[in-house]
């Protein structure tokens, strides 16, 4: 199969049981996406597929022929951080760092969902535009666990970037 990851095209031949996450980590050396539960319960493996966030442990690699994947490595590098990556550093939005790539990829996807006006459980019913309150951020990011509990700092980082971009 052929898959595009962070702009590079990879021709790969994988076991049909291989999750997208294991393809990234074990076959392509892209270990930035983390495995915390392998069951879609923690969000550490979140990547962007054609712009939308997804738990890469819950989807098989073979389902993504010709898809465009962006992982944490594709968002930025230590020398050229994505604005959200930089904001996470500035606001200390992590400690051990293991959930962090997933939090950041999830935040990228989440902000796009908000920009499109997709409502969440806590959104005001009947309005087209979603106001990105802290409550909205917390609700929409609740699929990404952080046992170090950097949650308040993550919200600060996301609000910081979203505010700058708005």
């Amino acid at each position: 199969m052929r898959i595009r990851i962070n702009g590079d095209t990879h021709e790969v031949d994988v076991d049909v049981r291989t999750s997208l996450l294991d393809l990234l980590r074990e076959h392509l050396g892209l270990t930035g996406s983390k495995k915390g539960c392998d069951h879609g319960q923690c969000g550490a493996c979140t990547v962007l597929i054609n712009g939308r966030r997804i738990n890469s442990c819950l989807t098989l690699a073979v389902m993504h022929d010709d898809d465009e994947i962006v992982t944490i490595e594709g968002l930025g590098s230590p020398a050229a951080l994505h604005p959200l990556q930089a904001a996470f550093v500035r606001h200390d939005g992590f400690q051990c760092g293991y959930c962090t790539p997933g939090q950041i990829c999830s935040a990228v996807g989440m902000l796009d969902e908000v920009a499109k006006g997709w409502p969440s459980l806590v959104s005001e019913p009947g309005t087209d535009a979603v106001a990105l309150t802290d409550e909205e951020i917390r609700e929409r990011m609740s699929g990404n666990l952080c046992r170090c509990s950097a949650y308040p700092n993550i919200v600060d980082a996301i609000r910081d970037v979203a505010g700058a971009g708005a």
């Binding site: 930035g32 996470f88 550093v89």
Partner: peptide
């Protein structure tokens, strides 16, 4: 800021 921050947030 954490000195290991850039590595962690970029998955390195």
């Amino acid at each position: 800021d954490r000195v290991d921050g850039p590595l962690k947030v970029s998955g390195r």
